[in-house]
Each structure stands twice: as C-alpha cells, then as structure tokens.
Amino acid sequence: MLELVIDARAAAISENMKVKRILPFRQRRMVGPFIFMDHAGPVTNAPATVSSLDVLPHPHIGLSTVSYLFGGKVTHRDSLGVEKIILPGEVNWMTAGSGIAHSERFEDPSALAGGELEMMQTWVALPEKDEESAPSFSNYTRDELPVFTDKDVWMRLIAGNAYGLNNDVKTHSPLFYIHAVLKPGARFGLPKEHSERGLYIVKGSIEVNGHSYQDGQMLVFSRGADPLIIAKTDTVMMLLGGEPLGDRYIWWNFVSSRKERIEQAKEDWKQGRIILPPTDNDEFIPLPDEKSKPAGGPNPEPLS
C-alpha cells in the first residue's frame, strides 16, 4: 500500500539556484540508503551573472553524492583533483567517505538556453564499515547506463539492480535508482527486489489505486506492496530505494551513524583539514552559524 506522499519543498543551494527538496522529510528521513534528494531546474530564466548559480566548494562525509542531468552541463571539481563536466544521461558518483570537498559550476551559458538545465542530486548513506573509506569519484557515461524499453515505457538503470537488470556502477549497499519515462496510459509496477521503494514524479501525472499524483510529489510504498502505476500524461519519474542502513545523523552536508563524528567534521571544515579542490580553492562555503541552525537529534533536517 501507499505509505506516504511527500510534497517537495522549495530550497536554495546557491544565490540563484533554487531546488525542490524531497528528502529528508520529517516523517520519512530515508528510503533505503537514500537520505537526500534535490530536483534542480528546469532553469527557464538564466540570471545575468551565470556564476550566481554556482555551488561553491563545500564538504561531505559519510555518503556518496549522485548527480544525474536531464539537460545542460555542470562542471564538478573536488579535493582529489578531479575536474569533470557531466552531461545529460551520465552519472557523477562521488563517495565522500572520511571527507571530501567539491564544487558544482555552471560555466557554459549556452547550456542554460531554452530552460535546458535540469538535474537530480541524491545522497546515498554509506554502511558503517564504509563511512571512513577513502574518498573516490567516478563518472559513468550513457553507454555504461544501458536503456531498457517495453510497451510505452523507457527506462535507464542509473545504479543498483531492479527488474532483473544491473550495471557496473559501484555501490556500497543494495539499492536501485532508475530514470523512467512513461507514455499516457502506460502501466508500470515497482521492482520487487528491495524492501524500501519510492518514486518521485519529475514531470507529468500518474494514478495509483484510483488517486492522482503529480510532478513534485514523492510516493513511498510499504514493504511488499505491489502497486499498479498508470501514467495519465507523458510522465518522467525517478524510482529509488533499497535496504535500510539504520539511523543516521545529518547536519548540513555531513552524514554519519555517530553524532560525535558530525562534530569532528564541523571542526575539520573550520580548521581547513578537509582539502579544497586544487583548481577551485579561492572561495568556499563556510560552516553555517550553529546558533541559528542547530544540529538537533538523529536525522535532523539538512541545512543549507
């Protein structure tokens, strides 16, 4: 059965980059290992200064960031010296582990033309044994993320396994992440391989159990549910989930199973112990003011 409907909330990740924030939600912090989900764009009105969209260097621990574009271009730079332009249909998978800093720059004005810039970013929490692993980065091209089709359905498996499909994207725990496109009238079901499952409607509308849902909403289903999803219009969805990892603390850009590790990460960023990207180190996002943005308890809301 349908367990919860989450309406995306407005948030800002830079001066002019507004997003729809889906996870975490106060009634549902995680779906499988997915602890964070933002939907940016489409950017229909490019600002006079394109750099005002940029997300300056900032730190992470205890998670993997997963960036996926529908349109546009984004330049990623990180502490490892990686500099990579991600294109639509590709995946940037950065594992922070013990600590990394990265930036996301929108450096090609032509990529903003016609409202093309649109992306999803999720964070995948790491199992406890991997929380202090060495940071790493991988880019997977469209050729490495094969597309599968059925009647009125197109889908790309971004990571994990689902519907008996898999690819070579390296993950740290059982999960699935899928970009799906449905034509009107298409009938679709959720993968049954995982215990926690949800879908986010990027565009369009669907019907589940006689009720309609539209873009900007995430539907989370209970264990064992086998819902029939019917597309009412041309619809784009992101399907995600997996096996739960247990409680996590989350504060700003830090995720950990241990509250004291969050406190250490705060001090590490303040003291410059998390290295800035070597080709993007002239500016960075400072640690938020803790007086106005308290850490809270297990799984407090992420703060930007």
Rank of each mutant, 00 (worst) to 15 (best):
Q217C: 06
S14I: 03
S292E: 14
Y68H: 06
E193Y: 12
K151D: 09
E196L: 09
A186D: 08
H102R: 12
F188P: 02
K259Q: 15
P174G: 12
T65V: 12
A12Y: 13
Y140L: 03
Y200G: 00
D234F: 02
K259W: 05
G241F: 05
I100P: 08
T233M: 15
S136C: 01
L87Y: 13
P300T: 01
V208M: 02
M94V: 09
G160R: 06
K259C: 01
N45I: 14
H172L: 14
A295N: 09
L126F: 11
K129C: 04
S52F: 11
D282K: 15
S257V: 06
H179G: 02
G115S: 01
L182T: 02
Q217T: 09
L287S: 06
S64L: 03
V31P: 01
S292T: 12
V208G: 07
F25E: 15
H76P: 07
M238P: 07
D150A: 07
S103Y: 00
P300S: 15
S304C: 04
E3V: 03
N253Y: 01
P244K: 07
D234T: 13
L199K: 10
D130V: 03
H60G: 10
L23P: 00
T279Y: 14
S136T: 12
R9Q: 07
L182Q: 01
K192N: 14
Y68E: 00
L276W: 02
M218D: 11
H76D: 07
M155D: 06
G246T: 15
V43N: 01
N253D: 12
P24R: 10
F70Q: 06
S133K: 14
